[in-house]
């Protein structure tokens, strides 16, 4: 305990880094997820293909490889990214690919007849998206997105491999330093502390989004999920064949 307190300034520094890293990553990932997610459900084929390719590519790459590739590969395209930028870019690329897939799933969960009835009212395509489909897609998106958020927070620890001194790396440094100075290895203690801190951050995040989900659910949908099931009756299926 004393060990941790003594190294607190260092830990706090690392924690701050982690917070900035996580906040920016979540922010960018959310925005890009929304954009790519919408792209993947538009009626424009080229946009759909681009979105699909993006999602498939980055979902298929291990995050650690992705981080290293962005860091070392950036100069190839004439960019020089520091560890911090490289980490943000690679986490965002990965997070957005996963997020876009969640957004797409949310849109697809909205029944098709909602679109038809919005069209029948003469609404513009963006109005249908914004007023009718979007809000209905939001609710089912929130829980998986919470999961993604916690994954991304955890993923920030991978910044360590490109030399970013974030929270996890700070812990590592403290362990090394103490081992050299005192000969004792406090690894179990320090990593235990690190573990609980990550866990605490993630559970705060989870409860925040749970609150949001409840709030939105109450304000907007009420019994949306339990409402009388809109029938897609046999006659319609037969008819459209």
């Amino acid at each position: 305990m004393e060990l941790i307190l003594k190294n607190m300034p260092l830990f706090l520094q690392g924690l701050e880094r982690t917070f900035v890293l996580a906040t920016l990553t979540l922010l960018f990932s959310t925005v890009i997820s929304a954009i790519v997610g919408v792209m993947s459900v538009t009626r424009f084929r080229i946009l759909r293909i681009v979105a699909l390719a993006y999602v498939e590519f980055f979902r298929g790459v291990p995050l650690i490889v992705n981080v290293l590739f962005v860091y070392f590969g950036a100069p190839l395209v004439g960019l020089s990214l520091g560890p911090f930028q490289a980490a943000i870019v690679s986490f965002t690329l990965w997070g957005s690919a996963n997020g876009a897939e969640i957004v797409r799933g949310g849109f697809n969960s909205v029944p098709k007849h909602q679109i038809a009835s919005a069209m029948a009212l003469g609404l513009k395509p963006w109005e249908i998206m914004w007023f009718v489909i979007g809000p209905q897609a939001l609710l089912p998106i929130i829980p998986p997105f919470t999961g993604l958020f916690t994954l991304l927070v955890q993923a920030t620890s991978l910044g360590a491999i490109v030399g970013l001194t974030e929270f996890f790396r700070t812990g590592q440094i403290v362990v090394e330093r103490v081992t050299i100075m005192t000969g004792d290895n406090p690894a179990y203690l320090i990593y235990g502390f690190v573990l609980f801190t990550y866990m605490a951050i993630c559970s705060v995040l989870t409860s925040l989004t749970r609150w949001l989900e409840l709030h939105i659910g109450q304000r907007r949908g009420r019994d949306v999920r339990r409402g009388p099931a809109p029938l897609l009756p046999a006659s319609r299926t037969v008819e459209s064949v």
């Binding site: 038809a116 029948a120 009212l121 609404l123 949908g221």
Partner: peptide, 20 residues
């Protein structure tokens, strides 16, 4: 067609009200 639909009301079998 979109503009035309503003002058053509349609009612579906499955009501299709916006639940939110």
């Amino acid at each position: 067609w979109r503009l035309a639909r503003q002058r053509i009301g349609m009612v579906f079998q499955d009501y299709s009200l916006f639940p939110h």
